[in-house]
Amino acid sequence: MGAAAEPFLEVEGLEKVFRIRRRAGRLRRERVEVRAVDGLSFTVPRGEMVGFIGPNGAGKSTTVKMLTGILAPSGGRLRVAGLDPSRERVELTRRIGVVFGQRTTLWWDLPLRDSYRLMRRMYRIPAARYRENLDRCTELLDLGPLLTVPVRQLSLGQRMRADIAAALLHDPEVLYLDEPTIGLDVVSKSAVRRFLADLNSERSTTVLLTTHDLGDIEQLCERVLVIDHGRLMYDGALAGLHEVGESERVLVVDLARELPPISGLDGARTLRTEGPRQWLAFPASASAAPLVGRVAAEYPLVDLSVQEPAIEDVIARMYAGRTG
């Protein structure tokens, strides 16, 4: 019982400084220090599912690389399952699973099944457990027909599912996912999300995912860490993030004909109109249902959709809220 309360990921004052040589003038070169991660601290208990968000270049990937032992930190303290990732990298590899969104860990020219066989031997997974895990992943991620196909022939969505399976064959205690749903179609996206939610609830695997897609966070993570310029900007629930940033969602409605801008609805304002289509902004923390109901009651509604705020907007508003 005591182990559960103990933090599984411990990050304290973590720093990473890159020294980059930049050309200054014809021959002269100057050294520039870039602080990619600048005094980051947080802990994650075992079994939690955490979203790691922030704009490009905020230091997300660098932090994940340090958590996996790929990069050595320049300062601060770091523990994953009690291990120092950089010094005990090889030991740690057996306990973590990593999915790099853009790069596959699979062998490009080998059939998927051969890639998994190699994984089994590399991680020395007992045969029975390998069978069981592979069967489970094959079924839940719908990989059956793909096992004989060389990885290079898989579509992006198929490859992502295949990569997630590869990262889970050795029963890792923590799974890092870098943009797991980027570029996926709606069906693949929801399949991946459902699988991750099950994994977390059934096996209590700790999951840390970086993403640009607020939908991922909304459906998967109780907790979000927002990082920018290498620092922690926010740590808490997604709803709270919307409140801090006062961000808005947008309801797009198609009316039967061109009408003057919709007005007089509480908490919503019309952003713009274009023929019969209108854009209504409303607070992201509010439910869309009452608003939809009222529009439908008062206007000839044909079609509608809801646009989530972009992560960059939420963060930009958060800044505005802090300074203003």
């Binding site: 996996t68 973590i96 790069r103 860990t105 991680y123 020395r124």
Partner: peptide, 13 residues
């Protein structure tokens, strides 16, 4: 250059 070395560093070999 393309960063695929990272994928080798997270394996126990």
């Amino acid at each position: 250059r393309d960063g695929t070395l990272d994928t080798l560093l997270v394996r126990p070999v």
